[in-house]
Nucleic acid binder design. Structure first.
Lengths: 136, 136
DNA sequence: TCTCAATTGCTATTGCTAATAGCATTTACA
DNA sequence: TGTAAATGCTATTAGCAATAGCAATTGAGA
């Protein structure tokens, strides 16, 4: 038994998440995106007129940390900050952003499929519900 | 639907792991330990005469990053570096380290139980096998 | 309608974790 | 025995998240 901790749910969860995040980061790197940036892109594409704060609340990213993240996406020409009123802005995908989102979706759906394929069939359908029960 | 990403296995995995790690960190903080430190303590306690490199290989912590971690544990009087030969040292728990390990085990087993309790019964037994299939 | 609390977007800073590159010494194998 | 591999370490870096604080704007209740 090379790893006496692997029967602990918390440990297994951490190791699986680390491995997964590393692989996803590798797959997104060719698109010039980090995982957090890709999530923001997906969220901004899913619903219009969301503010930075709203996206941050959904993803559990604090307002302060959304700023440099959105700056990078804006500098890359993928999103725009479109004023809603004098205080807030909507995060809107540019044309290039929508194109990039399509690539992100291709990468992530292939990734999620590969991920699930590694899980034995009899456990597979239980994974997402079990995980979501842990934090939602 | 507050979170359109939560059906993605990778996303659910990341969110669950983050929530879990945060909670475990909070529970270990009163012992003066971080999660990584507690794992090293558990591993060093599980088998004797392991070197820093061996522990690092099991936990996927690089040699370079084991150094400050073990320094902290040593400064706290929980482990000792006992020379095996002129190159390697065994990481050995001190008396205080064995005592601390008992506290760590109490915290983690309570934690793991609480974790599993949040998972609906019909998914519960599938969680650890599914997670381990993702990285082992 | 006026006031005050809450919200927004931001700056600046910090700590933790992990990654990289490099180095001297020691060990193990062929 | 000679060479490749391993060990423990230093030093540095990048990414990510957390905190504190601030000016301006908005919104809700009196």
């Amino acid at each position: 038994m090379p790893d006496p901790l692997s029967q602990l749910p918390g440990y297994a969860l951490r190791r699986a998440a680390n491995a997964m995040m590393g692989e996803l980061a590798d797959r997104l790197a060719p698109l010039g995106l980090r995982v957090a940036e890709a999530s923001v892109l997906m969220l901004a594409g899913a619903r219009d007129n969301q503010t930075s704060s709203e996206i941050g609340r959904i993803l559990d990213v604090q307002r302060a940390n959304m700023v440099p993240l959105l700056n990078r996406l804006e500098r890359a020409g993928l999103v725009e900050r479109v004023p809603i009123d004098r205080k807030s802005s909507a995060i809107v995908l540019t044309l290039a952003g929508r194109q990039k989102l399509r690539e992100v979706e291709a990468v992530t759906s292939a990734f999620e499929a590969d991920l699930l394929a590694r899980v034995p069939l009899d456990h597979r359908d239980h994974l997402v519900p079990a995980l979501n029960a842990l934090w939602r």
